[in-house]
Amino acid sequence: MSDRSAAAVARSARGERVTALVIGLVLVLAGVAALVVGAGWVGTFRAHRPLLDPLATEWLAARGDLARVGALVLGLLALVLGLRWAAGALRPEHRPDLVLDREPGTRLTVTGGAVADAVRADAEAVEGVTRARARLVGGEDRPALRLTLWLREGADVRAVWEELDRKVLDRARTSLGVDRLPTAVRLELEAAERRRVR
């Protein structure tokens, strides 16, 4: 899959993925280190030692107030970062409005919902398609399109694909004035009607 078409497939979650990857790697490394030490592969003396070094526990006991404040600050920081991460993951995906004319004194803006409705109507007119759903995603400068088509049983998928590319997507690119419109197309087959046997 090219980088251009990746924009249409999934919402941009690069920050969330990198954060999850870093946290996962740290936890895996901590688990491997605990396994290596606990199994005694680095010496039996280390395997029988307590989790916290006695020198560290003595230092923390001598500075109890400082340790509690530090633990509280770290806990609050973890809470804030976790809430921020959760809010970003639950935030609705951005549906861009496209500015087609930026001439001084005139400004022509098309909403993402209007583009999606027009593409959906065109896609539903394709032979073999029973219904369609479209969504414009990405940014104003680099829009992308997600399209889900439900096909009638026995529909010619190749003919549907060719008509979709030739008519629907070409019309969308021309209307929006863009050379490329990355599009992710998902095809669903309608369930066959159940027939009662008598």
Score class of each variant (00 low, 15 high):
A114M: 04
A116D: 00
V110F: 06
H94L: 06
P96W: 01
P92S: 02
L81S: 05
A89D: 04
G43K: 04
R46K: 13
G113C: 02
A89V: 07
L74D: 14
P54Y: 05
G64C: 06
L98V: 01
G38S: 11
L79V: 07
A39W: 04
P104Y: 09
L108R: 15
A114N: 07
E58R: 15
G88T: 02
L52A: 14
E93G: 01
L79S: 06
D117F: 07
P50N: 07
A61R: 15
L55Q: 13
L77F: 09
A78M: 08
R84W: 15
G88M: 01
V80E: 00
T57P: 12
D101Y: 01
P104V: 12
L81D: 03
D65V: 07
A62Q: 14
D53R: 12
L52C: 07
L60Y: 09
G70P: 08
A62N: 15
T57E: 15
A78F: 09
D101K: 00
R84N: 11
G112A: 03
A39R: 08
R49T: 09
W59F: 06
G40S: 13
G64M: 11
L72Q: 04
R91K: 05
D65E: 11
A61Q: 14
D117L: 08
L60F: 14
V69G: 14
D117M: 06
R95N: 01
P96Q: 03
V99L: 03
D101G: 00
V80N: 01
A87E: 00
L51G: 02
L66Y: 08
A78G: 06
L55M: 14
V69S: 13
A114P: 05
W85D: 03
L98C: 01
L72G: 09
V99Y: 00
D53S: 12
G105D: 01
W85C: 02
R102Q: 08
V110R: 05
A61I: 13
G88K: 01
H48Q: 10
A39D: 08
R95Y: 00
V69Y: 12
H48D: 11
F45W: 10
V99S: 03
A71H: 09
A86H: 09
D53E: 12
A47D: 11
